[in-house]
């Protein structure tokens, strides 16, 4: 039983990684959660999750003919399973993005919720794959016109691949009234409700510097509370295990010629 979410934004700096880990921790209170750093070109989840020094990462699973089992890159942290990605250029160069499908399929067999921390830009196959593979997208947006514009673009890409919308998470919000006024348009453009409104917070940076997810570092902060609310709003619909496994197995992501 699993539902896979791509945590996407279309723009850097919106707090996708912070959001993926925060939602993951909040959802882990009720579900088995696995968070994957699917941003194989600009990985940073390992820094947020205190995994900067680990030996095995997603990169090792994406090489041609990987020698290591998927489980070797899965780390149990803060009540959830975390699959970090490495940051070396060599690791990125040797990675075969299409192998992400196999990794996701295997992870899907043993978890309820898969959160794929997705790349910001959509300029490559590896960047778009998390959106292709996910059941639904969670669009993380700062309440600015450029961010909304990029978010619309990501959403449209996802829709093209039949990936549904779970809603919008407004992040780094300094003016809540701005969000209130656009909330009613959210459903129309992002195929889902406003899941949450997370205020701009110094606690986020402090958590990142401490190498901990926000909910572990500052569980009582307003931002952490907003993420917990968002997780409650996100109605996880874990599909039938066989159907899901079959879907990933048959996802048409051909190997390169």
């Amino acid at each position: 039983m699993v539902e896979a979410f791509a945590v996407a934004s279309g723009k850097g700096g919106t707090g996708k990684t912070t959001s993926a880990l925060a939602l993951g921790m909040a959802l882990a209170e009720e579900h088995d959660v696995t968070v994957v750093d699917a941003d194989t070109g600009m990985a940073n989840l390992l820094f947020h999750a205190g995994l900067a020094d680990v030996d095995t990462t997603l990169h090792d699973l994406l090489v041609e003919d990987p020698a290591l089992p998927v489980g070797d890159a899965v780390y149990e942290r803060h009540g959830m399973s975390v699959v970090p990605c490495g940051t070396s250029l060599a690791g990125f160069r040797d990675a075969h993005p299409e192998r992400l499908r196999h990794v996701v399929a295997e992870l899907a067999a043993t978890t309820d919720v898969l959160l794929l921390d997705s790349p910001a830009a959509l300029g490559s196959k590896s960047a778009v794959l998390p959106i292709v593979l996910a059941d639904r997208t969670i669009t993380v947006l700062q309440p600015t016109v450029p961010a909304l514009s990029d978010g619309l673009k990501v959403r449209e890409y996802a829709r093209s691949y039949g990936t549904e919308g779970a809603g919008v998470l407004f992040n780094r919000v300094t003016d809540e009234s701005a969000v209130e006024r656009v909330a009613e348009s959210s459903d129309r453009y992002f195929d889902g409700p406003v899941l949450g409104v997370v205020p701009e917070s110094g606690a986020v940076r402090a958590a990142r510097e401490a190498g901990k997810p926000l909910l572990a570092h500052a569980p009582d902060s307003p931002a952490a509370a907003a993420y917990r609310d968002a997780a409650r709003t996100l109605d996880v619909d874990a599909g039938d295990a066989d159907v899901v496994a079959d879907r990933f197995a048959s996802a048409v992501v051909p190997d390169p010629p």
Binding site: L122, S124, K125, V128, V132, S149, L152, K153, E156, Y157, R159, S160, Y161, G162, Y189, A251, V252, V253, P254, P256
Partner: peptide
């Protein structure tokens, strides 16, 4: 303005899908 962005993204998504060999993964 919103429709133009979405239409452009939709076209781009489909063109890129062809480039990346993902055409069969498209919904339509």
């Amino acid at each position: 303005r919103v429709d133009a962005i979405r239409r452009e993204a939709r076209t781009e998504a489909r063109q890129r899908a062809a480039e990346w060999g993902l055409t069969d993964a498209l919904a339509e």
